[in-house]
């Protein structure tokens, strides 16, 4: 900690433990959030190149969509200016909600460090997600914001449909973070059973890019896929938040989308907790 720059931290240093257990719990997890933030600070160089990386992604898709829209004005309900905004916003929010909880867990298992997690008197799921939240807060300022500024300067990205849509979008993006974190934790619990999980994580990475709607809107998928996706949490990661921003979801449907997103967050939290309970009974510590 002493090595980090004197930046304002999101939470004050922990005070002596109070009486209420809820307050105490909050303070513990707030501390994990702080740790996540500070740890990321140590690797801030990585985020400078991250801005370039995200810019490259958006640029590739900008040119692909430009070539596609030379021949048509409207595909699956999107014109060129909408699709460009869709792509840019999708990558900007990804730079915020993204985390590596599953990969971190896999390395903990491989290096036999999981024992250290187990002896902590805290909820492991909440611990991982709190640390990821700290990291995402860092990313919001150091990665998402600069990436957004660069993209807005270079490409003709549309503004939000209205103040109401913007507010819904922001709420939705925060829910996206919790959704991704809960999914990644659930996937991470597989690492305990299967020793080599890195290939599986790579598959999950591409699956999420595609099914979340990051690469292209869900409305581009064949109808049967769209129906199946309605019973999955993935489109709530990227597709729904960006549709809110673009104003393609209106009126009462806004609240309904956010409620469904919240439902999926809670469902994935519950699934992750159950998976952890089930897997952690079978832990073998490698060389621990």
């Amino acid at each position: 900690m002493s090595s980090s720059a004197p930046t304002a931290l999101p939470y004050p240093a922990p005070r002596p433990v109070g009486r209420s257990s809820l307050g105490r719990n909050l303070r513990i997890y707030a501390e994990f959030v702080r740790v996540g933030f500070v740890n990321t600070l140590a690797y801030r160089l990585r985020y400078y190149t991250g801005i370039v990386t995200y810019f490259i992604y958006v640029t590739v898709y900008y040119f692909i969509w430009k070539a596609i829209y030379e021949h048509s004005t409207n595909i699956a309900g999107f014109d060129f200016s909408h699709i460009l905004t869709y792509v840019a916003l999708g990558w900007i929010i990804r730079s915020f909600y993204y985390n590596n909880i599953d990969q971190d867990m896999a390395y903990q298992v491989m290096e036999g460090k999981l024992a250290m997690d187990l002896i902590k008197p805290v909820n492991i799921q909440l611990m991982y997600i709190a640390q990821a939240l700290g990291e995402s807060m860092f990313r919001a300022v150091m990665l998402s914001l600069p990436t957004a500024i660069v993209l807005l300067l270079v490409y003709p990205v549309r503004g939000p449909a209205s103040a109401r849509h913007l507010a819904a979008f922001l709420v939705s993006v925060i829910l996206s973070f919790f959704l991704v974190a809960a999914i990644n934790f659930t996937v991470g619990t597989f690492a305990i059973r299967l020793k080599s999980i890195l290939g599986l994580l790579r598959a999950k990475y591409f699956l999420l890019e595609l099914f979340s709607g990051l690469l292209l809107p869900i409305s581009f998928f064949p109808a049967i896929f769209q129906k199946i996706f309605n019973f999955m949490p993935f489109q709530y990661i990227s597709y729904i938040p960006v549709l809110l921003y673009l104003g393609k979801i209106n009126g009462r449907a806004i609240a309904a989308s956010l409620a469904l997103q919240l439902f999926w967050v809670l469902a994935m939290f519950a699934l992750g907790a159950a998976m952890w309970k089930w897997s952690s009974r079978k832990i073998t510590i490698q060389g621990g």
Partner: peptide, 10 residues
């Protein structure tokens, strides 16, 4: 996946 889905529309 991206190419496959894209060419279902174009």
């Amino acid at each position: 996946g991206f190419v496959l889905v894209l060419f279902s529309k174009i």
